[in-house]
Design a protein around this nucleic acid. Sequence first.
DNA 1: TTGTAAGCGTTATCAA
DNA 2: TTGATAACGCTTACAA
Lengths: 341, 341
Amino acid sequence: MGEKRVTFKDIADHTGFSKTTISRYFNKPDYLTPENRQKISMALKELHYKENKVAQILARGETNFIGLIVPHMFMSFYSHLLDRFLHTYDHFDYKFLVFSGGADPVSERKYIRELLSYQIEGLVILSHMIPSEELASYDIPVVAIEREDRAISSVNTDNYTGGVMATELLIRNQCDQLIYVCTDSRQEVPSYDRYRGFLDTCQKNGIAQDAFFRDSIFSYQMMYQFSEHALNCICNSHDGKKKGIFCSNDVTANIMLNLLFRKYGCLPDDFRIIGFDDSPTAQESVLPLSSIRQQIDLIVAEAMRILDSQIRARKDDPSCILQPKHSLIEPQLIIRQTTSG
Amino acid sequence: MGEKRVTFKDIADHTGFSKTTISRYFNKPDYLTPENRQKISMALKELHYKENKVAQILARGETNFIGLIVPHMFMSFYSHLLDRFLHTYDHFDYKFLVFSGGADPVSERKYIRELLSYQIEGLVILSHMIPSEELASYDIPVVAIEREDRAISSVNTDNYTGGVMATELLIRNQCDQLIYVCTDSRQEVPSYDRYRGFLDTCQKNGIAQDAFFRDSIFSYQMMYQFSEHALNCICNSHDGKKKGIFCSNDVTANIMLNLLFRKYGCLPDDFRIIGFDDSPTAQESVLPLSSIRQQIDLIVAEAMRILDSQIRARKDDPSCILQPKHSLIEPQLIIRQTTSG
DNA sequence: TTGTAAGCGTTATCAA
DNA sequence: TTGATAACGCTTACAA
């Protein structure tokens, strides 16, 4: 209980070596003779030495900290991403200082200032509060995922292709009226490309299309109401047609499916639905939902590749300029029971 | 680009004060005259000073780091907890170093060693890999949530009461055959108390009961298969009775509900279902699921209260003994459409 | 192969 | 109200 901290000095005194030699035991063990290594090793155990990386940081000027800001964790997309980032520790040895997004830019700036004061070497940003130009101005490597990324590096799903895949599947399902339902109407967000892919594909195939956008959705309740409203409109406007609904996320798709299921006890033949993300919701819904999978493992791997290479570049040449890199990851079409083949 | 780090020394040189005075500007501003404060403030801006908390840690011996180990983030319970913990930053100023659980105790021990080397002042542990006795031996404040907690502090939902609530609701629904379906059979886990509450309530009311346990479930697929198997058994064994199914989590309950819905197009009248956690799944399922809510906000608030008080106690008296505290948080009965009143 | 001594950027203790 | 000076625990030239 309450033992004083054991330091290199204590080990040095106990073994008769200098602090330097103890340091070398950890960093350049080859310089020591096996016997001396043995001696030090014993002393470390006897005195219950515990290493202190804070001191090491100060001396070396490297923290191996990466800051990570998620907007929230209620969308499984974000928690899944976070999980994968944390697991990169096994490869990269970066430790993650994590913040869950503020309600406003002010508190998020506070988070970032705090992160910088801990000398983070890079930042992963999933939240949308701060414009990329400001993030770039902090002059550390930053990589964004599925958010506005004009001035910073980013990794995103190839949303356009995802939109095309979903739309083509609905067309193969003989739908003659396609509808895009979206819970975020901002054009600067990468996911807006899903709509572009949808539109182009409808046009190319000469299929009628319709779309519902809604902004500022902060809760499941809001999403439910919006979906219900959209579905009512769809039923009223496109009666008699075979309707293919493409939702910008699985939660919305699931709500649509549930509404139909409660009404008809099944997915009626004149409806086809596909979601986006391939989140757990997609397989857990009453009828497993077709979806466009975002390959989160690949997204994270690529994000870390970019971040790590920029961090290394900075260590070689602290004044080097950080060129934003933008990577796209292929989506995957996941066909389940709300569409056929 | 590539500016050298600006330190107190630079500010001191620039203003003609000493480093000490600059430090005081931040920590004891009252000692300075307003004019001098002004001068320093200007200099900080001109030179673009950025504070360095790593140096501060070393000098002060306080990190304000809390380590946090989640088992994974695929169960929304954990990601929700994590989200709430991160948000306590606004009250407590603790920063969280987060690890997502290892596959085995060996890698998890590595995480803990790393955390300790960063001089964390406390540990929140949600994963199950390391026995509490070992965690206690690290001699820093530790608080566990919904895991084995013999030797460490913990905050848990009052699972027994939760079990009673669920069971009583099913009885009020005129069920005459109750079934508990559980995806974790370890008796040392707090959630086992749900079963005890279930059993006692069945006995007290003289209602027939049955139970299905399965261990080592690592994926949705396994959970699905287990649920399907259990439901088949239930249908075969208890035909003609009104069956009240109490699932140890909402995901299992949702699977059961989906299986019934696909078969019958509705929840048949001789079935009632209730889950546990009140996770998003519960409201998103085809028929909104009744559930026992774990009050995550309260759990986290209480966990931080315990942790913070032990951390403070340790600062006053580094040799003080850490008495494990165990708190229970009341669950809430959430009645939705898979049970009535 | 090992040691000396000067950092790293703060804070704490005294003294003025 | 301010300033020297010595920590904090480790790394890193440079020297031996």
